[in-house]
Design a protein around this nucleic acid. Structure first.
Lengths: 239, 239
DNA sequence: CGTCCCGTTGATAGGGTTCAATCTCCGTGG
DNA sequence: CCACGGAGATTGAACCCTATCAACGGGACG
């Protein structure tokens, strides 16, 4: 199940056999969690990072009055909180969105990687910088895109990222989360997300039903969302 | 002028004399730029990162129809695009907001640091993760905060970050940027930023005039913006 | 002294929120 | 096996925050 992670890394970088072994050996434990389980709270001292093997995770921040902003969604193959290796205490929460299987990677092991494997260190550094690139693109969505474009962009981004680990194609993908979850990603109300999804459907772009995104016209969806995958760095990056 | 950078690092980590020397030696060139000079464009291959010595820089993304979202502001002491060391090609533009003095740090030198100075590597890795934490907080502002709170939060964040390098106190700080620039950070129109700043002034929190932010009541400003500096990791972080 | 950019203010429009009701699905317990 | 309950999805109506459009002011600069 760590294959998704390795193939994500290899899509962008060359990973030697020795590095692959180091990665495989870095896992201390595998755990399964139900949906909506909070794995980390702000300010909590963490001693390991979590690699997503199966399911969806998110990072979010709570505000006063019950408002919540999800700042990132993680798909299988992602290191959900690799940044906690350097930050130690997170500034946000981490929660499962669906039933999830994760692998725990102790910070002590990551520390050893930075001491012995400079190239692999740069690869993982890249990985957190890629997360930041996604954060930036979400800032653009939240700041400048209309509700319709935001929905389209998010569905297009998730399709692209899931396709990289073989869990999506041009026709669609499984996404067992609620419209409320989407609204917390998109800075909208659930009611308005519902209306926007209806328009996406009426325009023949995509249909979101609980559990699955059916894409009717990928070009149209990406066009509505002004989606350009460059920020996901899908090609080789020599480090 | 690199002192600001060193003191920012030392506010959070212990930096040895040897590491300090490596940092000082990493600068290949110092340059001065006028305001509104674009230093990097999306997709451009970069071979060095830029450290801000004096002035303000920003990262932004352009959309169709002339819309723009600034995703980050950099103050003196910041590494404006340290992430370009691993990404190589940026997904956004980098521009000066004011006349700026920068130091250029070749990627080849950074590469050598990752080979020889694992601890310093982790410190710089932390630095890009801190940038990402700021991006996340901006997502929260853009997604969930009102115009008034967004303005207050940004002014409070910049005050806090500038205070860390001795360029702000509780009474205010110099910020020679336009309301248009602010609006591009905040996902608002310049007109509405103007009205929101007026309200901040009327509420006795702060006054923004070209060139300077005068703070009348810091607690009030931070309260309006729901500002909590935890995401800026102001305290020591053992790496 | 004219011009341009930015700041400021007013009036109007509109996208998204809020409030509220209904519907559907599904797990649970009698 | 079916009634019940709860969470999420859906839809309508009214409201409000922010955008848009427009006009004017003021300072910097050629």
């Amino acid at each position: 199940m760590i294959e998704a992670h390795l193939s994500l890394l290899r899509a962008r970088h060359s990973i030697s056999i020795e590095e692959e072994t180091a990665i495989r050996d870095s896992i201390s434990e595998v755990r399964d969690y139900p949906a909506r389980k909070v794995l980390a709270e702000p300010g909590e001292e963490l001693s390991f990072s979590t690699l997503v093997l199966k399911g969806f995770l998110c990072r979010y921040k709570d505000l006063s009055e019950g408002q919540r902003q999800i700042t990132q969604i993680h798909v299988p193959g992602d290191f959900a909180d690799l940044h906690s290796f350097t930050l130690k205490k997170l500034d946000h929460s981490v929660m499962t969105l669906t039933p999830t299987r994760i692998a725990m990677v102790p910070h002590a092991t990551l520390n050893r990687i930075t001491e012995r494997y400079p190239h692999l260190t740069r690869v993982y550094w890249f990985s957190t910088n890629l997360d930041a690139a996604i954060n930036r693109e979400w800032e653009v969505s939240l700041g400048r895109r209309t509700a319709l474009a935001r929905c389209a962009h998010l569905l297009a981004e998730l399709r692209f990222r899931l396709a990289m680990v073989g869990q999506a194609d041009r026709r669609g993908y499984d996404l067992p989360i609620s419209q409320i979850d989407l609204s917390e990603c998109l800075g909208l109300t659930a009611v308005h997300v519902n209306r926007s999804l209806r328009r996406l459907r009426e325009e023949g772009a995509a249909t979101f039903r609980i559990g699955r995104v059916e894409i009717h016209d990928l070009a149209r969806l990406e066009d509505i969302g002004e989606f350009d995958p460059a920020y996901l760095y899908p090609a080789a990056v020599p480090i």
